[in-house]
């Protein structure tokens, strides 16, 4: 009996240690961020903040501070990006996933290209082109840059989602008298929807976090939260940076909750299939 106890204890000690390390690596930086968000004064060699308070929150949300404007910008840009990316990737994913498209591989790789090169190089050139087209510093210009980056995810995931649908299901619908269009809307699209939703989440989060493209195309007219975060960090203002990061969490979590309400967990779980 004691032998069993000892052996289970022996097994659990290293496991516990590993779990603790993993938790520390994940939650350590997050905890640090939380501490900074509520810090007034904190300097070396103090282990914890010397003075706590909400002074910097007041500064962030002050009417002349641009945190709220950036937040609204970020969310609007992200939502528009999702709408555009998804409306492109539904037909594209259907064609690439279910039809015989010539150059299929090359088309799929083309969507990856913007990610394949150093992003600064890509965005400097995009910015130059956008300047000449008058798109620089506009809402739509920033949305386009985000869409370019998001399409690789949404098109690839949608293609996979459409490709995995059993052909016999569409044939069954046709056999039961449904037209091609009806088959698409009642069978194919609903079955691809979990994948498309997942791609939407990816694109939303990607757009919300996007920095480089926004920096080159949007600044100074369009400010988003990541830009605000960058400015604050560069000024060494960790409080502002931490608070901005926390604000950045709000739309991400809200979006995921909304998606989760529409999609039951068991549907989400099928994305991998």
């Amino acid at each position: 009996m004691t032998g069993i106890l000892r052996s289970t204890a022996a097994a659990w000690v290293p496991r516990g240690l590993i779990l603790f390390l993993v938790a520390f690596v994940i939650f350590g930086p997050l905890a640090n961020m939380l501490l900074w968000a509520f810090t007034e004064v904190w300097y070396f060699p103090a282990k914890l903040p010397i003075e706590w308070g909400f002074a910097f929150w007041e500064r962030v949300f002050r009417p002349q501070g641009n945190a709220m404007e950036s937040l609204i910008n970020s969310v609007l840009i992200a939502l528009t990006t999702v709408v555009i990316a998804v409306s492109v990737s539904i037909p594209a994913g259907y064609a690439l996933g279910r039809r015989r498209v010539p150059w299929r591989g090359i088309i799929l790789v083309a969507f990856l290209l913007p990610q394949a090169f150093p992003s600064v190089a890509v965005h400097i050139n995009v910015a130059r082109i956008f300047y000449s087209m008058g798109l620089a510093g506009t809402f739509f210009g920033v949305v386009l840059v985000h869409t370019m980056q998001g399409l690789v995810f949404s098109v690839w995931i949608s293609t996979a989602a459409f490709a995995t649908i059993d052909h016999e299901l569409e044939e069954a619908a046709r056999n039961l008298g449904a037209s091609a269009l009806r088959t698409f809307f009642t069978v194919t699209l609903p079955l691809a929807l979990p994948g498309i939703m997942a791609s939407g989440i990816f694109v939303f989060l990607l757009s919300l976090d996007e920095f480089t493209g926004t920096f080159f195309v949007g600044v100074p007219d369009i400010t988003t939260l990541p830009l605000l975060l960058f400015t604050a960090s560069m000024e060494g203002n960790y409080q502002i940076a931490s608070i901005t990061s926390l604000i950045l969490l709000v739309p991400s979590v809200a979006f995921m909750l909304i998606i989760e309400r529409f999609l039951k967990a068991d549907v989400l779980a099928k994305i991998g299939n």
């Binding site: 059993d166 016999e168 079955l191």
Partner: peptide
């Protein structure tokens, strides 16, 4: 159909 092809949704 061999797989029955029932609409899973």
């Amino acid at each position: 159909f061999q797989s029955y092809a029932l609409f899973p949704h």
